[in-house]
Amino acid sequence: MDIIPQIIVSGIAAGGVYGLIALGFVLIYKATSILNLATGEFMTLGAFVCFTVMTAAGAPFPVSLLATIGFAALLGVVLERVILRPLIGEPIISVIMVTIGLASILRGLTYMIWSPEYRAFPPIFPPEPLDLGFAIVPSGLLWGFAFAAVCTAIFTCIFRYTRTGLAMRATASNQQAALSMGISVKSVFALSWSFAAITAAMGGIIIGNISGISIHLGTIGLKVLSVIILGGLDSIIGAIVGGFIIGILENLAGVFLDPYLGGGTKEVVPFIVLVVIIMIRPYGIFGKPIIERV
């Protein structure tokens, strides 16, 4: 069996999850121009909540999924109201640092509540791998991809075709105009944060399901930064395409560069891509170029 198709297929599968997480970044950035560096912690928290509902309460997966969504939505709204709203209009460093501080708080709380040891997720997907003929997709990746694809589709549809989505897009394109049209920008902000928290929690569940959960699950959140920079910070399509590209690239690097560079290239390649993109095309593949007017 040839190795290249296999790598690309696993890359695409992983890329689907990245795309989903990146969607969370993009939703928040579009609505509020904030880059949420606490996304990784949202993921961890979501995965742990789902895990706890499943194991401690013995609930079936759909129920715990709903519980997680409810929790994440609430978390997003509360955080937006308490922490982010006082900082609207503050300089960029304050806003970035506040999400970093938030990440630290959430990480500490997760640690306190669930203790740092590594746990395996209860199986929620059928374990049989899918044989495509030219490549085999492990079950976790396959179902994770399907799950991520469904979530992404749902969110994209909400954004595109509903009234709420219209309000969100209006806010993203011009806050003043949206306000004068009677759109409640505050509730759009809150909604974006809860949507982002939900996508992050979904991503956390998928990743937790593939590789087990621990408090370090969220480190992937920072890797996804390369996805959104590659795709363009304000583009949903970009998030999805960027996810696939990064997924494939890091898998290729893992196979072809590891022997020469002594392992671990999978972790660093996204960041190298990120730097290259920032140097040559900072607004990404699909993003809007930033034009500064004096």
Binding site: V98, I100, G101, I105, R107
Partner: peptide
């Protein structure tokens, strides 16, 4: 202690910023 440190650390950043 370890997680407590992180929480307090994050809370300090957030509170000072706000």
């Amino acid at each position: 202690f370890m997680p407590m440190k992180e929480v307090i650390f994050g809370a300090l950043i957030v509170l000072f910023l706000i």
